[in-house]
Amino acid sequence: MALTREQMAQRVARELQDGFYVNLGIGIPTLVANYIPDGIDVMLQSENGLLGMGRYPTEDELDSDMINAGKETVTARPGAAIFSSAESFAMIRGGHVDLTVLGAFEVDQQGNIASWMIPGKLIKGMGGAMDLVAGADNIICTMTHASKHGESKLLEKCELPLTGAGCINRVLTDLAYLEIKDGTFILKERAPGVSVEEIIEKTAGKLIVPDHVPEMTFDA
């Protein structure tokens, strides 16, 4: 079975380490915040200028001056800091964020990512995604492994306009967890009940399959 969105978020959350500063993109990455393991403290960075994003506010706490990068009203947790957009992207571009999680349309075996533009469709903009992928050493891409029509999104070479070049080293899809190294995908884990054969079939880029590919486990 392919992973659900929640399972994908759970799997990414296992990569969090105590003391990490983390930027979570929109969509599945946002859900990661719901699965931070017990005993681990992470500080969430929101690129509009908030380090230490807290929960959504109660009605009483609601404040129009307090939003996240998705423009949702949020709170600041104890120990948070608030700053300008230039400061925010200084910490992103300067490589100070420990982990970035973001979605993608396509990634390729060179670590290129396309996530912001589909030619012929309406272009709304890249927001902070290009800065995030350029600045981080440690990025996890969350995406579906293949399109609804079965076409692979893990490619030899991205077809869509890039968000960043050579910057992605880990990908979690609904079928598998993979690393990208030296121009190849390396299969590390597979979703429960998903065969290695299916992953091979749905990976268009070069793929190394170790002898043993463990199956991910999830609490019921």
Binding site: A86, F89, M130, A165
Partner: peptide
């Protein structure tokens, strides 16, 4: 790109005519 936009304003105000950034390279 959002960070480039912020930095373009910052640089403009700070008398720096241009700057190099990795953001957007290869795109």
């Amino acid at each position: 790109p959002q960070g480039t936009l912020a930095e373009k304003m910052r640089a403009g105000g700070a008398g720096i005519p241009a700057f190099y950034t990795a953001t957007g390279y290869g795109t």
